[in-house]
């Protein structure tokens, strides 16, 4: 990878499945040290994209390059059910040799208060997710890919997992990509967004920048001149419209507000579906 600031770069990435393209023409760059939300509905291609980036799937076309080593936690956080926590750590050690940081692993397990002698199948969903995260982090990856790390987790476990992850980002500068279909989970956690819909990248970039570039306007699409209307609800001259701003908006200030991350994502997903609800 030529640009040292880029941790993940996909170019023309595509994967053809029997029933069609699971992923098509995906190109994006994620800067080193960023935390990216990979968002999309179920079946949008999030898992496929992450597996390709993790080297577990070969793309049909294009390529994805990652800078440095890659850690991956698959959906459902697979772990060996009959193993104890200590045995899972030993698994990490023997399958990673010198890439494994045992001190760090034990520190993380301690912070998560996971009993070393507990069997994996006796752990709660949240504890299992944390153990899976420990295994991925203890390899000291440069890029960490997490597929739906927060699904089916109670709020406390969710906060614990995010905190562990964010501390790791602060400590090691690891680049993180988390997929989710619940955007609100990641508000305030992610600084980058990658929006997939039916295998195609709809939106990519820095969250603040994306939010800055979009406005919710209490006006119909006919009133908005050259600005790109993403989604309009209502008629030609009334209703609520989400626009991508390309210059000054010729609309009274009090009718304009900044969208939230979730609002933005949902607008794009709806727009692409041609459903103006």
């Amino acid at each position: 990878m030529s640009d040292p600031g880029v941790a993940v770069r996909a170019e023309g990435l595509g994967l053809r499945r029997r029933r069609g393209w699971a992923l098509r023409d995906c190109s994006f760059e994620l800067p080193a040290g960023s935390v990216t939300a990979l968002v999309g509905a179920n079946g949008a291609g999030k898992s496929t994209l992450l597996k390709i980036a993790a080297g577990l799937l070969r793309p049909s076309e294009g390529a994805v390059a990652t800078r440095g080593s890659v850690g991956f936690v698959a959906q459902d956080k697979p772990l060996y059910r009959g193993f104890t926590v200590a045995e899972m750590l030993r698994f990490g050690r023997v399958t990673n040799a010198e890439d494994w940081d045992d001190t760090y692993a034990r520190q993380l397990v301690g912070e998560a208060a996971l009993p070393l002698s507990a069997k994996v199948n006796r752990l709660s969903g949240g504890e299992r997710a944390r153990l899976a995260l420990v295994l991925a982090l203890a390899r000291r990856p440069d890029v960490l890919l997490l597929d739906e790390p927060l699904s089916e987790m109670d709020p406390v476990a969710r906060e614990d997992v995010l905190r562990t992850l964010m501390v790791a980002v602060a400590e090691t500068g690891v680049t993180v990509v988390l997929s989710t279909h619940v955007v609100s989970d990641l508000d305030g956690v992610c600084d980058h967004l990658l929006l997939l819909d039916r295998g195609v990248v709809q939106l990519a970039g820095e969250v603040e920048e994306l939010l800055d570039n979009h406005r919710v306007v209490l006006a119909g699409r006919g009133d908005l001149g050259d600005h790109q209307v993403i989604l309009g609800r209502g008629g030609e001259h009334r209703g609520t419209t989400l626009v991508r701003v390309t210059g000054e908006l010729d609309v009274p200030e009090e009718l304009v507000s900044a969208p939230g991350l979730e609002e933005l994502v949902i607008a794009y997903l709806r727009a692409n579906r041609g459903v103006a609800a």
Binding site: V167, V169, G188, D191
Partner: peptide, 19 residues
């Protein structure tokens, strides 16, 4: 507080703290 301290207490993205 360092970014790590803030993150450890709040669970937010360290890049946000740095920003």
């Amino acid at each position: 507080p360092t970014a790590k301290d803030v993150v450890a207490r709040t669970g937010i993205n360290p890049n946000t703290v740095l920003k």
